[in-house]
Structures are given as structure tokens and as C-alpha cells.
């Protein structure tokens, strides 16, 4: 009797805990939608294409920030994913070497590293020498933030492939490069692509790394890699600190756009990458 009671109490506890853990996610999605959707509805399609209005009544749009987010994400993925993938392969392929073990530890430290420090670091090595904020500085900061995720996921995904497939590939006379890229990579693709996506989602959603690097430009569209650029998270951060009600509305609308961008990258690719049944 007592054991049954204990069992039920434990079950209730677990369900409650799970509910508490996932509650913020649903609350965020719900509140962003409730507050953001009317704004976009009111502003219309121009919300996506127009530039930021002056303080007052107008809503206009957040076009430069959306474009900026895409440029920063694209640029940082272009630089970060290939390098991080190679680092992940190195860690998985040479698990016992000193450098590989050091790489793994450093990657885990980098994941936990406060991103605001990354922003300060890039500011000191790129922004100060260049004399201004720039898209390239923002992208470099995002590269540093995304790389450890991509590398660690790649390493874990490759390591999770049973040894027997690696042996089979070598036994067919395949060279190491072919074994890794043509066999192991394909078998582990779901884990690897998940790592890419988490990296891309990080780059699209992070605020701190671009705080002291990208600069933010919301009244002009992208004008060059060496010029300041806006981004949706940075825009939200800027707008909520302003005392103007139209800026607060735009911030909610921006939050919904960011959420949609995030879900739009994540869900379809996650679903379309077929898992290999081992």
C-alpha cells in the first residue's frame, strides 16, 4: 500500500517537474504570438521590408534587421561550419591523441563560455583596429559561439556509429577520407545535421556576441561587410529599452519574426533528415 502510494507520488512529481521544465517554452511561444501577431497584422507585409520608423505612432518595418540576421547567420555558418566539422572529425578520428583530448576539453569550455566575453574579445581584435562596428566583426563573434556546438555534435554523432561499419569500409580498401566522408558521415548524418542546425539557430538568435561587434543599423539596408549591420535579437534588445510605445510594439513583432525564422530553420530540416536505422 505504502509502496503504491510512493510510486504514485513519484509519478506526480516527475510529471509536475516535466511540466515546469517545458512551461517556459509554451509560455514564450504563446505570449510572443499573442503580442506579436496583431502588430504584424497591423503593419502588413511592409513590416518585413521597410526600415525602422522614428519614435511615435508609426510601425513601418524591420527589413534591415531581418536581412542583417540572414547575412550574419549565413556568413558565420559559411566560416564556422566547415572549420567546426573538421575539428569534430579530428576529435572523433584520433580519440587518443593529446591534441584531440585537448580539443574536446576546449570545445566543452567554449560551449559554457559567457558569450558577452566573446563579444568583448572580437571588439578588441576587430572592431577597435577597424575603427567601427561591422558585419564581419559580428559574424566572427557568432562563428566563435556556434563552432563548439557544431564540433561537439559532429564528434558525438561520428562516435555513435558502431565500429563494425568503419571496419567494413576499411576492409573494402577505402581510404581514410572516403571512410569518414562517404561512409561514417552518411550514417551519422542526423546527428551531424542537428549540430549544424543548433549552430545556425545559435547564430540567428544570440544577442550578446553581436552587442559590441555588429553595431546595429536599422534605417539603412546592408551596405557592406565592413559597415555596421542590424540583427533581429539586437533590435529587440535596443527597442525594449526605449520609452516609445511603437518601439515596444515593433519589438513584439520582431520577436515573432525571430521565432518563426527559428522554427522555420529547425523543424523542416529536422524532419527531413532521415535517421539511419543501425
Amino acid at each position: 500500500m505504502l509502496r503504491k502510494l510512493k510510486n504514485s507520488l513519484f509519478l506526480i512529481y516527475i510529471v509536475l517537474a516535466t511540466f515546469l521544465v517545458t512551461l517556459p517554452l509554451f509560455h514564450i511561444i504563446f505570449s510572443v504570438f499573442i503580442n506579436g501577431f496583431p502588430v504584424i497584422l497591423k503593419a502588413g507585409l511592409s513590416f518585413l521590408t521597410e526600415t525602422l520608423p522614428p519614435p511615435g505612432e508609426e510601425l513601418a518595418g524591420i527589413g534591415p534587421a531581418i536581412l542583417g540576421t540572414f547575412i550574419l547567420t549565413f556568413l558565420s555558418s559559411l566560416i564556422g561550419i566547415p572549420i567546426a566539422t573538421l575539428a569534430g572529425i579530428y576529435a572523433a578520428e584520433y580519440p587518443n591523441s593529446f591534441f584531440s583530448r585537448a580539443t574536446r576539453t576546449l570545445l566543452l569550455v567554449m560551449i559554457e563560455f559567457p558569450t558577452i566575453l566573446v563579444s568583448l574579445f572580437v571588439m578588441s581584435i576587430v572592431v577597435l583596429p577597424m575603427g567601427r562596428f561591422s558585419a564581419i566583426a559580428g559574424a566572427i563573434a557568432l562563428v566563435i559561439v556556434m563552432m563548439p556546438y557544431v564540433a561537439v555534435y559532429t564528434e558525438q554523432a561520428l562516435k555513435s556509429v558502431p565500429e563494425r561499419y568503419r571496419e567494413a569500409a576499411y576492409a573494402l580498401g577505402l581510404k581514410r577520407k572516403q571512410v569518414v566522408f562517404r561512409v561514417m558521415f552518411s550514417i551519422a548524418r542526423k546527428g551531424i545535421v542537428t549540430g549544424f542546425l543548433i549552430g545556425i539557430a545559435k547564430a540567428a538568435g544570440e544577442t550578446a556576441p553581436i552587442l559590441f561587434t555588429a553595431g546595429g543599423a536599422y534605417r539603412t539596408f546592408f551596405i557592406g561587410l565592413d559597415k555596421p549591420v542590424g540583427a533581429i535579437p539586437l533590435l529587440i534588445y535596443d527597442l525594449v529599452q526605449q520609452p516609445y510605445s511603437n518601439y515596444h510594439e515593433i519589438a513584439w513583432g520582431s520577436a515573432l519574426i525571430l521565432l518563426i525564422v527559428f522554427l522555420a530553420i529547425f523543424i523542416p530540416v529536422r524532419l527531413s533528415v532521415r535517421e539511419v536505422k543501425l
Binding site: 563494425r164 561499419y165 571496419e167 567494413a168 569500409a169 576492409a171 561512409v183 550514417i187 548524418r189 539511419v276
Partner: peptide, 11 residues
């Protein structure tokens, strides 16, 4: 070579 556990590539 043929192995103890059949290991055709699953993908």
C-alpha cells in the same frame, strides 16, 4: 573480409 556480425552499410 567478412565479419562476425553482418555489417552491410545501413544507409
Amino acid at each position: 573480409m567478412v565479419f562476425q556480425i553482418p555489417n552491410p552499410f545501413p544507409h
